[in-house]
Simulated assay, not measured.
Amino acid sequence: MYGYDAARTSHVASRDLPSADAEVGRFSQTGAQTGGGGSVEAPPVVNDGIAYVAGDTRIEARDIETGTRLWETDPEDGVNTSPVLACGTVYVSTLNETLALDSENGDVLWRVDGGAHSGVSTSPVVVDDTIYVAVGGIAALNAETGDERWHAQTDHSAQGVAVADRVYVGAGSNGSGEVAAFTRNGDDWWRTTEPGEVALLKPY
């Protein structure tokens, strides 16, 4: 997922990488008329030789060796976040909804209202059987069905979510920032109330 893991550590263990002069292959292009994935503003997710790409005109899976498109799904509105791959399912937040797609064929398994407002940092997070989505706050959904488990509101539109021991949300509007932390059950733990100030609402 975006940031590698649920906590967004962006830390990947050392592994073999291609040389600096390795051949570059293009498997998606900007523009719907070219047959590509449309304009792609966020990184793809790659697993077992397949890249899952969320472009503004379609969501697709590509073989990373040949560039062959394995499947494609056209969302009802734009996408500007990275997809998440978990338990054989591709989860994507569009501008107005969140989708769960079968990773093998792109079939829509479920869709719910509420999606990402802007930026790749609003990509969903999946932990165990729960998907966390920034939707004018933070919503925890059943990853298998899309049913809402809880929804916590923030003062501004959520711009990012990370999950570790707690669920952390960054929100902001017109330069006013807010950070909030919630328990895995959706209870308030703490929130910033003024720039640079942290108010503890519950003990650890």
Rank of each mutant, 00 (worst) to 15 (best):
V198Y: 08
N174G: 08
S121Q: 13
E76F: 11
G3L: 09
L70D: 07
T130A: 03
A54C: 12
L200S: 09
N174E: 14
G136C: 04
P195D: 09
G49Y: 01
G25L: 05
E60G: 15
G136A: 07
R58L: 13
H151F: 13
E72V: 10
S28L: 00
A20K: 09
L99T: 05
R191Q: 11
W189M: 07
Q33P: 01
D77G: 09
A42H: 05
T193G: 06
Q159V: 01
G172M: 09
T81M: 07
P75A: 10
V84I: 04
T34F: 06
T192F: 11
V24H: 02
G170C: 10
T183G: 14
P43N: 03
A42D: 07
P75D: 09
S19T: 15
S28D: 06
G38V: 07
T192D: 06
G35K: 07
V24I: 13
A162I: 01
G37Y: 00
W189P: 00
L141K: 06
G177P: 00
A6G: 15
G88C: 08
A116Q: 03
A54T: 05
Q159C: 03
D129E: 15
R149A: 05
L99N: 04
V112H: 00
V135W: 00
T66V: 07
D56E: 14
S173L: 14
A152V: 05
A162E: 07
G3D: 13
S123V: 10
Y132W: 11
S14M: 02
D187C: 01
L85R: 03
G172D: 10
A181R: 10
L101A: 01
T122E: 15
Y4F: 14
T68Q: 14
H156N: 11
T193W: 12
E194P: 01
G25M: 12
R166F: 01
F182V: 14
T94A: 14
D5I: 04
A13Q: 05
E76D: 15
D147T: 14
T192V: 00
P124M: 06
N96C: 11
S123F: 11
V24D: 07
I59A: 12
V40M: 12
V163Q: 04
Q29V: 08
Y132K: 04
N80T: 11
W110M: 05
R8K: 13
S19P: 02
V161R: 06
T98I: 06
N80E: 15
S123Q: 03
D188R: 11
T34Y: 01
G31V: 04
I64T: 15
